[in-house]
């Protein structure tokens, strides 16, 4: 049997734009993509990041910067320090904030989205999650003075 082709404009089935189901699917996909993008922004990005350098606005005080990061469950910590039996140095980084920058590391109570939260904090101008490469100095095998507890030390809660 021969089939007669009828132009869509004459058949009455011509539609402008994609099929309704396809259009609905595209809308749902677009919403999902936006949601995922937003969620990804709020999550620690890049994933698995545990430390960052954080630049603050020039008018941010040390107290305000410190409260910002501790509210998020972060702490200040200098690169190259912290290994067991390494020379200890104060970790507050008060001097470093003169350059409007703090090095921070995540603690067990860090916000799941701390990287994204910091990035959207008004007093923060830039945040860099690395990866970092540091040229750390050689420490003496038996340093004089206080040393750091190191990774293997058990956590002690203090009240």
């Amino acid at each position: 049997m021969a089939t007669q082709l009828v132009p869509a404009s004459e058949s009455g089935t011509r539609r402008h734009g994609p099929h309704p189901r396809l259009a609905r699917g595209l809308r749902v996909a677009a919403v999902l993509i936006l949601l995922l993008a937003g969620w990804g922004f709020l999550q620690a990005s890049p994933p698995g990041i545990a430390a960052a350098s954080v630049d603050f606005t020039s008018d941010t005080s040390y107290a305000a910067a410190l409260q910002t990061i501790t509210d998020l469950g972060l702490q200040t910590a200098l690169p190259c320090f912290g290994g067991a039996n390494q020379i200890w140095t104060p970790m507050g980084e008060r001097d470093l904030l003169q350059m409007h920058r703090l090095w921070v590391v995540a603690t067990p109570i860090a916000a799941p989205a701390w990287f994204g939260r910091l990035r959207t904090t008004p007093s923060v101008t830039h945040i860099d999650g690395g990866p970092f490469r540091f040229a750390c100095p050689n420490f003496p095998a038996h340093p004089v003075g206080p040393v750091s507890l190191g990774d293997d030390a058990p956590t002690i809660y203090i009240a």
Partner: peptide, 9 residues
Amino acid sequence: VATTDVAPT
């Protein structure tokens, strides 16, 4: 508060 690896002995 709690101790961390960067606290002094």
